Amino acid sequence: MAIETMAPYAKWIIIAVAILYFAYLFILKKKIFEAAVGVALSGVMAALVAVVTMAIQIPTPLTSGYINVGDSMVMLVAVLFGPTIGAFAGGFGSGMADIITGYAHWAPFTLVIKGVEGFVVGYITSKKDDFTTVLLATILGGALMVLGYFMIEIYVYGWGGAVAEVPGNILQAVTGIVVGGGVGHVIKRRIKDVLISLRV
């Protein structure tokens, strides 16, 4: 199985992805964070992601993690504001929620995994934003989130802990697809001109 082959390299894969994530945000897109609108949107959206993530938390004792509905906000932000704000708010907002609520050991992983989720959803929907594209983008983003946590959990907890977390992570992904993707699509259609002027 491909996942079994990749599992021993999970740490190196996440490190490589983390490097690409930070390079994208703070090297390729650094001008966005030098503009007032970029700083404001990034900060506000990251705070909203953190608040929604903390609003409902169901602990998972086996892996010392928790189930939340933060993916709905990660995907919503990505659909509305594109890959850069989606990547920043998804990663930093979710990581901040982990730290604030006592799950700091998950924050580095969450930062990268949710950041990638926000980037992928934002990138695809910035190219085309019809319902089918938004649906496919959020499904892919959710799948990457589930896969990302699964690989880390295999490395940290073994197969038993990783498999135990899959249903909860799938639930988070589905919530994000339905709420974040659905609401994002509706809002974007209604105020598209405003969003275009804010997109950075």
Score class of each variant (00 low, 15 high):
residue 104 A to F: 11
residue 44 V to D: 03
residue 126 S to N: 13
residue 65 G to K: 02
residue 128 K to V: 03
residue 138 T to L: 05
residue 137 A to D: 09
residue 167 P to R: 09
residue 14 I to K: 02
residue 113 I to L: 03
residue 10 A to Q: 07
residue 123 Y to Q: 09
residue 123 Y to E: 08
residue 9 Y to I: 06
residue 108 P to C: 06
residue 81 F to L: 14
residue 99 I to C: 08
residue 7 A to Y: 03
residue 78 A to P: 03
residue 68 N to C: 06
residue 35 A to V: 10
residue 119 F to G: 04
residue 123 Y to T: 00
residue 42 S to T: 06
residue 44 V to T: 12
residue 37 V to I: 15
residue 11 K to C: 03
residue 54 M to A: 14
residue 170 I to H: 04
residue 131 F to M: 15
residue 172 Q to H: 09
residue 107 A to G: 09
residue 111 L to K: 04
residue 27 I to M: 13
residue 50 A to Q: 07
residue 141 G to L: 08
residue 143 A to I: 07
residue 135 L to I: 11
residue 171 L to W: 00
residue 36 A to T: 15
residue 101 T to V: 12
residue 14 I to R: 00
residue 96 M to G: 02
residue 155 Y to Q: 15
residue 84 T to S: 11
residue 173 A to Y: 01
residue 200 V to N: 10
residue 83 P to S: 08
residue 86 G to F: 08
residue 153 E to V: 00
residue 42 S to H: 05
residue 85 I to T: 12
residue 5 T to A: 13
residue 168 G to P: 08
residue 137 A to R: 04
residue 157 Y to R: 08
residue 153 E to F: 00
residue 74 V to E: 00
residue 174 V to P: 00
residue 17 V to K: 05
residue 167 P to L: 07
residue 142 G to D: 03
residue 189 R to L: 13
residue 99 I to W: 10
residue 69 V to H: 03
residue 166 V to P: 09
residue 88 F to Q: 07
residue 138 T to E: 01
residue 178 V to W: 01
residue 1 M to P: 10
residue 69 V to F: 13
residue 55 A to Q: 05
residue 124 I to L: 15
residue 27 I to D: 01
residue 195 L to R: 09
residue 48 L to N: 01
residue 112 V to Y: 06
residue 91 G to E: 03
residue 69 V to T: 13
residue 63 T to Q: 05
residue 190 R to H: 13
residue 21 Y to D: 10
residue 127 K to G: 00
residue 93 G to K: 01
residue 139 I to S: 02
residue 173 A to T: 00
residue 143 A to R: 02
residue 161 G to Y: 05
residue 178 V to P: 03
residue 27 I to A: 14
residue 121 V to K: 01
residue 10 A to S: 15
residue 200 V to L: 14
residue 100 I to Q: 09
residue 164 A to N: 11
residue 13 I to A: 08
residue 57 Q to I: 07
residue 156 V to G: 06
residue 1 M to C: 09
residue 82 G to D: 10
residue 32 I to A: 14
residue 6 M to L: 15
residue 191 I to E: 07
residue 144 L to A: 06
residue 82 G to M: 11
residue 50 A to I: 03
residue 154 I to L: 15
residue 163 V to E: 11
residue 176 G to F: 07
residue 23 A to R: 10
residue 4 E to D: 14
residue 158 G to A: 06
residue 183 V to H: 00
residue 3 I to G: 08
residue 1 M to W: 09
residue 47 A to F: 07
residue 29 K to N: 14
residue 196 I to L: 12
residue 178 V to S: 01
residue 51 V to Q: 04
residue 27 I to S: 11
residue 167 P to T: 08
residue 171 L to S: 12
residue 105 H to N: 12
